[in-house]
Design a protein around this nucleic acid. Sequence first.
DNA 1: AGGCTTCCTTGACGCAGATCAATGGCGGAA
DNA 2: TTCCGCCATTGATCTGCGTCAAGGAAGCCT
Lengths: 249, 249
Amino acid sequence: MAALQEKQVQHQECGDCPIRHRAVCARCDTDELVALEQLKYYRSFQAGQTVIWSGDRMDFVASVVSGIATLTQTMEDGRRQMVGLLLPSDFVGRPGRMIASYDVTATTDLVMCCFRRKPFEDMMVKTPHVAQRLLEMTLDELDAAREWMLLLGRKTAREKIASLLAIIARRDASLHLRQPSSQLTVDLPLTREEMADYLGLTLETVSRQISALKRDGVIRLEGKRQIVIPDLRRLLEEAGDDSDGGMLA
Amino acid sequence: MAALQEKQVQHQECGDCPIRHRAVCARCDTDELVALEQLKYYRSFQAGQTVIWSGDRMDFVASVVSGIATLTQTMEDGRRQMVGLLLPSDFVGRPGRMIASYDVTATTDLVMCCFRRKPFEDMMVKTPHVAQRLLEMTLDELDAAREWMLLLGRKTAREKIASLLAIIARRDASLHLRQPSSQLTVDLPLTREEMADYLGLTLETVSRQISALKRDGVIRLEGKRQIVIPDLRRLLEEAGDDSDGGMLA
DNA sequence: AGGCTTCCTTGACGCAGATCAATGGCGGAA
DNA sequence: TTCCGCCATTGATCTGCGTCAAGGAAGCCT
């Protein structure tokens, strides 16, 4: 039991590859770790670069090491909807599917930790923990997608903006283990247009609603890409969420 | 190899429980089957009955045997968004999570095949095939959710209706292995209000757009709950989808 | 039959957010 | 420094869908 504890700690501290942490470490053994180590490789992308286009052959799965990537769907006439926002430690790619279903784009400089699909699938069959961890992550993503559907289908523009800011603040906080001070500062990693694609709005409406929230004292702006949230509770009210997502501990 | 073929056929034909078919049969062995058999039990619900409320303790997972269930989220002020539509063979419930995240409602008379959560989780750990099959199903659901997000965020009311009709037609066809005739008849298992909750619209808009599609000859109505699609291609165009979802073989 | 209830349709009107357009600010290149 | 390109803001106007309201159709109970 002590040995298991030790091994977990060691693995959690020992690397820069989130797949290892999230998909394996929870209940890994050495063989699995070694197998994963040998398979992985890194790819870097510049901000704005496309990782893969929808419909292209995708022969790898990956997790985000640093930076931010988005999944978007596009209609023939150019209407775009973001359907996934990948922050560090998030996984992308789908075992069992060759063809990408979405455009994957780096919105900031991006480093991904990749595994060629076939060997990863083989390894998944051999090591049930990976499949189980992946199932857990996928279920989390599904929950997030459903929360997102409520936002897209039923929330007002103002509520959508407040929700997005809360989501970013939450992920930011959990990523950096920030102290839960009553005032928090959040970097917006997205342009107004990207926020619009996330929320099913136009960039003008995004801009107007951010201005409105600022005017009403819900947020303050430091430059254009950094917001200060003086009262998180207030923001969550504006978002129309009944749950705080664990932010108000 | 012949033996494997035979076993699969046998299992696919041998029962009324979709979990067994979808989660296990693809690569099952007898022990797993027996274990599942012993765990399962059935529950019936009347149309309109609530299976479980969001926030309640959910001590089972289940798959739909017959009838239709929906997952919906509700905001404090009553705005509702459907986030899942469960047809026969669909799975609901989440290993590893005690608390239901959505309201689950029977929209028609409903029979579910249930497994108590704890033993199902135990079994999942022991039999990797189940976890892998469940992962596959969850990834499919995630893809559907993302398609749904595009619909909610970017499509017009008319496109939303056309998309929904196409989705129902597709699932209907795959369920009943219908002949791909150029004209197909589809039963609408949802009220106008439920369609509105699915699409992020009001029931009045749903009604108006259905009337408009009828007026324009895209669909015909036989009664209020049955539609005839004279030209599927036309409907898919109206839906704004670039993919036909495999319907035009 | 008559009168419920439930579901659906249609009309009139208003508003939230889209669209079109102009301007401002900032950072990088020369 | 000046120019240029990108991003953001703000205003004016338009419009698709929501809201409110009034029936209609079909099924069920008495």
